[in-house]
Design a protein around this nucleic acid. Structure first.
Length: 723
DNA sequence: GACCTGCTGCGGAATG
């Protein structure tokens, strides 16, 4: 303790004493030494509430106080993915900085203009900002970047794992590079993260040119005891004698969760609404106070704040039925139990969710996994017979227990984000040559997989008169075109990710939340939303507002969504689960019976020894044994040859069309490596915000870099045929 | 077959 503590500046030491801390945590002591003794970049990995913020900022603030540097601007930069997180962290840092007389400046969309104006006039202290607000600074104050960040000695990136290989993460990396180019010097990078699988990839994300010199400070395991149960439920019981799976699960949750704080991850917003509605009804029927509330991103900020406050309040037992909104970020305190209805989409998410429980000393973490499977009939499809949802749940729990989780996928080109950054660089500089833009973004920045040829194609696509995003002056300088100008001028430009169009739902003058516009609604229709029932009164198309009032019945709305990407290793484990004879000790009787049925059907279809099962002349099941990306590559190859293909976890259901060759012939062709037009079978590859401005060949290239693996086809098919 | 995240500058009116 002493050596680390002694390195801190006086005011920081005083703050620690006032706090009454008896010692620094291990990660804090190690991080203080690393930051004080070296110039190294750093990742501090520990669970939420593990003291990461202090580990980074105690030594950084000490340096600012003890080693004044010349240059103007903010001394330290903090980047957070959520507004709520920035607000929380600013309050935490203010405590330390008050003593040190260092300003703390929170900066995001909800922060008042006056705070921002004052900070711009005299930039110093710690700036806490979102990637989007930083983007806005580059665009609106491009020429002032050097003045604002000339003195910045480190940038702290919070929740590093949430931005690793996402569009937002690539944007952030691009902005960090541009920051160093503008200030003409490297700025130390410090990533704060939950303990996740592959830390080498996190290092490469943080400092691509010197990943191996990034220091890693990881909290020792010390994991809480884990209690685990997997329960199986049958849906589609039409006889009316037994309750539906939904009712049975709701009753089980009601019985076991009432009276404490819990999180129930229901998988989709629609299911959140269904379970919240059932549980509310159960409370009413028993004349008990309400304690089950829905929480997802379409609900109003007001309602979400209310649920979050209740979770923090020890006097009010509260169970939130939620989506991934309550998986990351803000502190909601410790919960007794985490329930998961249906299989999750990634082990990483499951792990993050489970980390919400068992945080208090001596308390176990509790996971209740509910698997819903269809009641079988002679007509049931192989998907139901193989009980793929249950099998995936088991595979994911297995991998969770082994400490594995999905690594990021760093091979994507990110052409949509590239378009965004090209416009941003041009706006920042008021014009730039193609070679400067290429250097900044593709040689120095994160778009290193983009060749000069592809870059030139992107410039041509967005400079095409019909697109009009950019144009070239006589001098060769790239400038914003009329469309580009309009796009960049509007505040909606700053975020790189796409958001769907929505209606606002209003009851008695209060916002309930938002609904995707693809819901077909008319006055008189009944709705379940925000855990209550409503009838639609008026629809205002132009203002995108729907007025509702309370009702006695309703159905939940539809919320869209993309298909999930399941990782190779998860699918591989699913096949092991089907082939092994082991019964996991955490499974209860019904789920074990389902597992036996699944294994028997697997055996019956012969997948233990081969990968293709055909019934009749025209229909076959192919076991690909690989994840979503590779399986959908094969699906597209077969579709381009005229087959009708349905995709499932590690399997394809293939039906011959009128003019298709037989499946063996088609597979032999694909195996030979002869070119297959993966994009012939239609398919829509416009999925990201700036995709609409790209040409078809560029869209295909982008898709091939992130959603498909064309080069895998010969070996994949070889393995399928061989077995 | 799913989920989540974010947003500036200006003009005009009211207030001290």
């Amino acid at each position: 303790m002493s050596s680390a503590f002694d390195r801190l500046a006086r005011p920081v030491q005083k703050w620690i004493r006032q706090k009454g801390w008896r010692e620094l945590r291990d990660i804090q002591a190690r991080s203080i030494r690393t930051i004080c003794e070296t110039n190294a970049d750093l990742i501090v990995a520990a669970s939420t509430a593990g003291g990461k913020t202090e580990a980074a900022f105690l030594p950084l603030i000490s340096q600012v106080l003890d080693e004044p540097c010349d240059g103007t601007g903010f001394d330290l930069l903090y980047i957070g993915p959520l507004k709520a997180l920035i607000t929380d962290q600013a309050i935490r840092l203010e405590g330390i900085c008050q003593e040190a007389e260092l300003p703390v400046v929170p900066w995001h969309g909800d922060v008042s203009q006056s705070i921002k104006t004052r900070a711009l006039k005299s930039p110093k202290g710690i700036l806490l900002i979102t990637p989007e607000s930083l983007e806005a600074l580059f665009i609106r104050r491009g020429l002032e970047i050097a003045r604002l960040f000339g003195a910045t000695r480190a940038v702290v990136i919070d929740e590093l794992h949430t931005v690793l290989d996402s569009e937002r993460g690539v944007q952030l990396r691009s902005l960090l590079t541009r920051l160093e180019l503008a200030t003409k010097r490297p700025i130390r990078r410090i990533g704060l993260s939950a303990t996740l699988g592959d830390m080498d990839l996190a290092k490469a994300y943080l400092r691509p040119d010197a990943a191996s010199s990034v220091q890693l400070i990881e909290a020792d395991g010390g994991e809480a005891e884990l209690r685990l149960q997997l329960r199986g439920y049958l849906s589609g019981d039409e006889d009316g004698n037994s309750p539906s799976a939904t009712d049975a699960i709701a009753a089980h949750l009601f019985k076991h969760l009432r009276g404490s704080d819990n999180l129930v991850f229901a998988g989709a917003r629609q299911r959140v609404e269904i379970y919240a509605d059932r549980l509310r009804e159960l409370c009413e029927r028993e004349h008990l106070p309400q304690e089950f509330y829905p929480h997802h991103a379409s609900l109003s900020r007001d309602h979400r704040d209310f649920v979050e406050r209740r979770l923090k309040d020890p006097a009010k037992p509260t169970t939130a039925i939620c989506t991934s909104t309550l998986e990351l970020g803000i502190d909601i305190g410790d919960v007794t139990c985490v329930a998961q209805i249906g299989a999750p989409f990634s082990v990483a998410a499951l792990r993050q969710r489970l980390g919400r429980s068992g945080r208090r000393e001596g308390q176990p973490a509790i996971l209740r996994q509910y698997a819903v499977e269809a009641k079988l009939s002679p007509e049931s499809s192989f998907v139901d017979r193989l009980r793929l949802g249950l099998i995936r749940s088991i595979a994911m729990i297995d991998l969770l227990l082994e400490g594995w989780c999905e690594p990021p996928k760093p091979q994507a080109l990110h052409l949509s984000t590239l378009v965004h950054q090209i416009l941003s660089v041009i706006a920042q500089r008021g014009g730039a040559s193609a070679s400067v833009v290429y250097n900044v973004l593709c040689r120095e920045g994160p778009f290193r997989r983009v060749t000069t040829e592809v870059f030139a194609d992107v410039l041509r696509a967005i400079g095409h008169p019909e697109t009009g995003l950019i144009e070239q002056a006589g001098s060769g300088l790239l400038l914003l075109g009329p469309t580009g100008e309009k796009l960049v001028e509007h505040y909606s430009f700053y975020a790189v990710f796409q958001t769907p169009e929505e209606f606002r739902l209003v009851a008695e003058g209060r916002d309930l939340g938002t609904l995707p516009i693809d819901n077909v609604l008319a006055p008189g229709m009944l709705l379940i939303f925000s855990g209550r029932r409503w009838v639609v009164q008026e629809i205002h198309d132009r203002e995108k507002v729907i007025i509702v009032k309370p009702a006695k019945a309703g159905v939940p709305p539809v919320f869209g969504g993309d298909a999930g990407d399941i990782y190779d290793k998860v699918i591989d484990r699913m096949f092991s689960v089907l082939e092994r004879g082991i019964s996991p000790p955490y499974m209860e009787a019904v789920s074990l019976e389902m597992l036996d049925e699944a294994r028997a059907h697997y055996e019956q279809l012969g997948f233990r020894t081969k990968n293709i099962y055909s019934f009749g002349e025209r229909t076959s099941i192919i076991a690909t044994r690989v994840g979503t990306v590779k399986t959908s590559t094969l699906a597209l190859a077969l579709r381009s040859k005229g087959f009708l293909v349905e995709q499932h976890d590690g399997f394809l259901l293939v039906e011959a069309g009128d003019e298709t060759p037989d499946l063996q012939t088609a597979l032999t062709h694909i195996r030979s490596g002869e070119p297959v037009d993966l994009f012939a079978g239609a398919g829509n590859f416009v999925s990201e915000k700036f995709h609409p401005y790209l040409s078809k060949p560029l869209l295909e290239l982008d898709a091939a870099s992130s959603k498909l693996v064309p080069q895998i086809l010969p070996t994949l098919v070889e393995r399928i045929i061989q077995a």
